[in-house]
Design a protein around this nucleic acid. Structure first.
Length: 409
RNA sequence: GGGCGUGUACCCAAGUGGUCAAAGGGGACGGGCUGUAAACCCGUUGGCAUCGCCUUCCCAGGUUCGAAUCCUGGCGCGCCCA
């Protein structure tokens, strides 16, 4: 394996970064790697509680992939031991301790989903559980570890500082979290650690610890921005529902991308695609490109990454036909209902909606009908007491996106 | 261990004995206008074969004809003192 010239690597690796600690040292490391023909070890920590990967996670994963493509080694750390503490980043809620089996499963799912972005070849990736080295530590080891930092240093952390100021509680174990995560870096001897902005403090602790433990050269910390979700305001997250999952159907990937706020396009283009910056400038300039066209291109780009170009073309075509032309997709999911639900061959529409899972309850179904959101065979029905006679192939639609083709067997 | 405070629907929050399926806001959903964008406008936001009935205001008891509201006990959360 020979490594590309440092400048070429730097150009790609720095794209989209929020911060690098620091650039010069990164250059030095890449330089040495290039000369000695030795891959760098790129660390990425993963929390075994959230196995569902969405585009937000891929920002960091894509960065990892770029390193891999340059010949470096991805070192994935499954934080099974740190999960006992719970990262203090988010809310103060204490997390339930996960059992081994669940952690294993989550890690497996994560690994599989990350494979949509990462290169999973044996020589390109290493997966480690941090219980491997954290569990055997004895109290003296822990004293040594905790002895590396002062309370004042720990309270530099934004989250802790804030909680102190607001008289909110901080568990001692939470103070341990950054140390544990940092110790991972020491043990696996990482050259670069990747993380989102919320991980800055933790990752920098790792960088410090490596110094203190006498590693020859401490890790570089490369911080990626947090991707904002579909609403264009909040960060992309599963709990907020503003996400696109890497396992989403092509039509959802395409459709959801088409619905993002215009103001989000530059960010998404930068962090989720490799479209060159000057092209992005043109794409997001409303006077040069119609925002809709820019978004279509973005949507196709995303779909192509997780499926292929052909699928992306197809989604664009369908989008034209369905959304612009008011037609129907040719792949509407089929759904059937139990014959016993019929009365004289008929069924109350709200009930049908519930059975078809187009509405969570008949009450909700009734409201949707009353609100003018329901159509049967393309004809709007607004009478909440209406009944319909189910027929094979009947199209039942709620809103613009929930459509089902009735299948009678 | 002691004191004070607090717990209402997805979230915030009003409600201190009936007129409460519970104000208002946010979010979400549906409709309109659009470019499945933003802004704006309208509607909905516990369940049920259908407007009346059923189950809700942390939990369990109690007072009362009647409780989200009062009492007792528990639990959770926060602050202060030790």
């Amino acid at each position: 394996m020979s490594f590309l010239p440092v400048d070429e690597q730097m150009f790609t690796l720095l794209r989209g970064c929020e911060a690098v600690f620091n650039e010069d040292e990164l250059r030095t490391k890449l330089d040495r790697s290039h000369k000695e023909n030795r891959p760098l070890r790129i660390k990425l920590g993963m929390d075994p509680t959230a196995p569902d990967i969405h585009l937000g996670h891929t920002v960091v994963l894509r960065k990892m992939r770029q390193f891999q493509d340059f010949g470096h080694t991805a070192v994935l750390i499954i934080g099974d031991y740190t999960a006992r503490v719970g990262d203090p980043t988010g809310k103060t809620k204490t997390r339930p301790v996960l059992d081994e089996e669940t952690i294993k499963q989550n890690a497996e799912t994560y690994f599989q989903q990350a494979g949509h972005v990462l290169d999973l070849s044996d020589d390109k990736i290493e997966m480690r559980y941090n219980s491997e080295w954290l569990a055997p530590l004895n109290f003296a080891d822990i004293l040594k570890l905790t002895g590396q930092m002062t309370v004042a240093q720990m309270l530099q952390r934004e989250n802790f500082k804030k909680r102190m100021a607001e008289d909110k509680e901080i568990a001692i174990t939470e103070l341990l979290y950054p140390l544990m995560q940092g110790y991972d870096s020491v043990v696996i001897d990482s050259d670069v650690e990747l993380g989102g902005t919320d991980q800055t403090f933790n990752n920098l602790v790792g960088r410090d610890l490596m110094d203190k433990y006498g590693n020859s050269s401490r890790q570089i910390v490369l911080i990626m921005p947090i991707l904002r979700g579909l609403d264009g305001v909040e960060k992309m997250s599963k709990s907020l529902g503003n996400y696109i999952g890497v396992t989403d159907e092509p039509k959802d990937m395409f459709g959801k991308t088409m619905r993002i706020a215009d103001s989000l396009m530059r960010e998404w283009y930068t962090l989720l695609t490799m479209v060159p910056k000057d092209e992005i400038d043109v794409l997001v300039d409303g006077s040069k490109t119609h925002p809709r066209d820019a978004k279509v291109r973005l949507a196709k780009n995303v779909v192509t990454q997780y499926y292929d170009a052909e699928t992306a073309e197809r989604e664009e075509r369908l989008w034209q036909e369905v959304i612009v032309g008011g037609g129907l997709r040719d792949d509407i999911p089929a759904a059937s209902i139990a014959g016993g639900e019929l009365e004289d061959g008929q069924i109350w529409l709200p009930k049908l909606l519930k059975l078809l899972e187009l509405a969570p309850s008949t009450s909700e179904g009734r409201r949707l009908v009353k609100g003018g959101g329901v159509s049967v065979d393309k004809k709007k029905v607004t009478d909440p007491s209406a009944t319909v006679t189910p027929a094979d192939g009947m199209i039942v639609q709620v809103g613009k996106r929930r459509v089902v083709r009735l299948e009678l067997t």
